[in-house]
Design a protein around this nucleic acid. Sequence first.
DNA 1: TTAACATATATAATATATTACATATATTTC
DNA 2: GAAATATATGTAATATATTATATATGTTAA
Lengths: 177, 177
Amino acid sequence: MDLQTVILGFLNDGPLTGYELSKRMDASVGFYWHATHPQIYTTLKSLAKKGLVDFTMEYQSGAPNKKIYSITDAGRDALFRNLQSETLKDEVKIPLLVAMYFGGELGPQYWRELLANHLDAQKAVLEQYRSLCESLPQTDPDRDLKQFLRYKTLDFGIGYQQFLIRWLEDILKEIGE
Amino acid sequence: MDLQTVILGFLNDGPLTGYELSKRMDASVGFYWHATHPQIYTTLKSLAKKGLVDFTMEYQSGAPNKKIYSITDAGRDALFRNLQSETLKDEVKIPLLVAMYFGGELGPQYWRELLANHLDAQKAVLEQYRSLCESLPQTDPDRDLKQFLRYKTLDFGIGYQQFLIRWLEDILKEIGE
DNA sequence: TTAACATATATAATATATTACATATATTTC
DNA sequence: GAAATATATGTAATATATTATATATGTTAA
């Protein structure tokens, strides 16, 4: 899986500008695949060079012009070929766990404070996912598999946050809030 | 958080060669911070250049020589400074979720098979973490905070796998195994 | 005894990603 | 009216990471 495939996936739903792509990504796939905007712009450029996407210019008087990107037939082929040939190996970096593994010497007071702050932040993220969830229609897999699977990726995010929050609360109980 | 800090963290427990570092990482911190061996060797080199680690050569007749790396006082300072100045923002890439988000068109049969295979693989990972867990002493935070926090990072891995497995099983039930 | 695998250390080429810089307008807030 | 923020698009410099290549020995299994 790479950013190219992610971008092709978004464009398979309809044409988008780089900016719209970036915003849409942050609001959906973002929590399990993040990309910054320079990355998105450069990847769009290289996808266009390969003929997997093309774009039309929308000239605007006053505001900067827009490049509206669309997926090509070759792009659609590449998308589904890539989706099926994936190793599905996660790439995960969780700095909190690294800090916990190596930072025992920082003392209980340090960890009480840091974990309490982290807990608050994670609760806020959970609420964010929950409000996103309300705006998403929940369907059964036989009616609309695509929508069902998309719903399930958000469900993953909610379940993960719940697990994280419980785990943090357990530790705080043990080291004494 | 960066690989430099992770390596300094390991060396703070005692001297290691690049190879040992790589193996130890895979067997502990690996599931929340992974690095390949070329990355480790080049990072060790740059840490040495900065004076945060040094090394002694162990000349071996027959077998290749070993470079045994140790952390310096400056390295220890850098380690604890870095550990405390972290943003703690996760960097997570989960290809399975991306594939689910974009791959609804691949059909229910495709997803049944893929998710069932993924479930088996994740169960194997859970067993691996569990056997690791048995060899690790569980202490209370007042007696040995360092060991307690290390234990908790493994506990996180186990809890995460359990959540993942339940989530996959739920989906398989819904799309009909 | 030959092949395969594990130990051990690296470099080179390439790919990917981040941070800082750069520009320009519209809208909202003080 | 000025400042801040959002929209919108990009480049440059740098940092980080992966894959392939290279070398050389010890150990284990067919």
